[in-house]
C-alpha cells in the first residue's frame, strides 16, 4: 500500500552505469526494491550489481516487465531520458537529476499528463514506501512503516521531520519529495488526493518552503474538499529575504508572492496544524491522532 510505489513496483534505473546511478542502485537493492533492469545507451549487455543493462528503455521494459523508472542521467540529457521512459509506456518516473532546463521540464510534464503518467521531481530525493519500495537517494534507516503520508519540497528537511515522526512511533505510509525546482511533476494537491484514497494513510504531513503557491493551493483544496484526514505542515523560510534564491532554484520570493507567512496563514485558515519548528510536527500530529484514538503512542517496535 502507500501511494505511487509499493512492493509490486518493478523499476529500471536510467543512467545505471554512472557514479550516482550505480551507487544508489546498490542501496535500493539492499532495501528490497525490485530493480529489474538498467539503461545506459551504448552500455547494453553489461551488468551493474547483478542488474542487466540495456541500450534502450523499451527493450528493458519488454524483457523485464518494468512499470517504473528512476533517472540519474546528467542534466542536459535528463529530459530525453524521461521522454524515452514515457514513450515506453512507463507510468511512474522519478527524476533525481538537478539543474534540468525548465523549458525541457515543461515539455516532459505536458507529455506525461497526456499519457497519464506520474513524474516525481526533478531535483527530488525520490519516494519511499517504508518496508516495501525505495525509489530514491534518501537514507533508508530514518523511515518506519506506518500511517503518516509525507510530501515535501526539501530533502534533508524531510529526513529531519520523518526521523522525528519515527522517534515518537509514528511510521510513514509513503514519503516523497516533490522536487526543489520551479516546475515539478507533482503538486501538494495531487499528493493529498492520493493520500485521501490510500487506506494505510491516516494523516498527512506537508513540508513546504518559500516560492510559488503550491502550499496556498493545498490549503484551498483542504478547506474546499473538506479533507478527511488530519494534516500538519511546516514551512521553511520565514527569515528568507525577497528576491534571493535560497539554495533551491524554486525557493525564491518574487515581488509579493511566495512568502512563508502567506503559506502559513493559508494553512492555518484551512485548519492545518502548522509547526513552528521541525520537531513540533511529530508532537502536534501525535496529540491530534491520540485524541482521535488512531494512535496510542510509544516507540515503534515496542
Amino acid at each position: 500500500m502507500g501511494i505511487f510505489v509499493d512492493k509490486s513496483t518493478k523499476t529500471i534505473v536510467q543512467g545505471i552505469t554512472g557514479t550516482q546511478g550505480s551507487f544508489h542502485t546498490k542501496l535500493m537493492l539492499d532495501y528490497g526494491t525490485q530493480i529489474v533492469a538498467g539503461v545506459t545507451p551504448g552500455k547494453g549487455g553489461t551488468q551493474v550489481h547483478g542488474v542487466s543493462v540495456y541500450d534502450a528503455v523499451d527493450e528493458a521494459v519488454k524483457k523485464q516487465e518494468a512499470n517504473a523508472s528512476i533517472i540519474f542521467v546528467p542534466a542536459p540529457f535528463a529530459a530525453d531520458a524521461a521522454f524515452e521512459a514515457l514513450d515506453a509506456g512507463l507510468k511512474t518516473i522519478v527524476i533525481i537529476t538537478e539543474h534540468v532546463a525548465v523549458k525541457d521540464v515543461i515539455q516532459v510534464m505536458a507529455r506525461a499528463k497526456k499519457q497519464g503518467a506520474t513524474v516525481i521531481g526533478p531535483n527530488t530525493p525520490g519516494i519511499i514506501t517504508p518496508a516495501e519500495c525505495k525509489l530514491g537517494i534518501m537514507p533508508a534507516h530514518i523511515f518506519r512503516r506506518g500511517t503518516v503520508g509525507v510530501a515535501s519540497r526539501s530533502g534533508t528537511l524531510t529526513y529531519e521531520i520523518a526521523s522525528g515522526l519515527s522517534a515518537v512511533g509514528l511510521g510513514q505510509s509513503t514519503c516523497l519529495g516533490l522536487g526543489g525546482d520551479p516546475v515539478v511533476g507533482l503538486s501538494f494537491v495531487d499528493v493529498l488526493r492520493e493520500f485521501e484514497e490510500d487506506e494505510q494513510t491516516k494523516a498527512v504531513v506537508l513540508i513546504g518552503e518559500i516560492g510559488g503557491n503550491l502550499e496556498e493551493l493545498a490549503a484551498d483544496f483542504i478547506s474546499a474538499e473538506g479533507y478527511s484526514k488530519p494534516v500538519a505542515a511546516f514551512v521553511a523560510g520565514r527569515t528568507a529575504p525577497r528576491g534571493k534564491r535560497m539554495g533551491h532554484a524554486g525557493a525564491i520570493i518574487m515581488g509579493r508572492a511566495g512568502t512563508a507567512q502567506s503559506k502559513i496563514d493559508a494553512f492555518t485558515e484551512a485548519g492545518v496544524m502548522v509547526a513552528e519548528k521541525p520537531s513540533d510536527v511529530a508532537r502536534l500530529l501525535a496529540e491530534r491522532l491520540k485524541k482521535k484514538g488512531i494512535f496510542t503512542g510509544g516507540m515503534s517496535g515496542t
Partner: peptide
C-alpha cells in the same frame, strides 16, 4: 556552496536548502 549574506551575527552552515532555511528560522524563533 549556495551562500546568501544576511544581516545578523550567527553564522550558519547546513546540508540541504530546506534544512538550512529551517535553521535560520529556528535561530530567529
Amino acid at each position: 556552496l549556495a551562500y546568501v549574506k544576511l544581516d545578523g551575527n550567527i553564522g550558519v552552515i547546513g546540508n540541504g536548502a530546506g534544512l538550512v532555511m529551517a535553521t535560520l528560522d529556528a535561530i530567529k524563533l
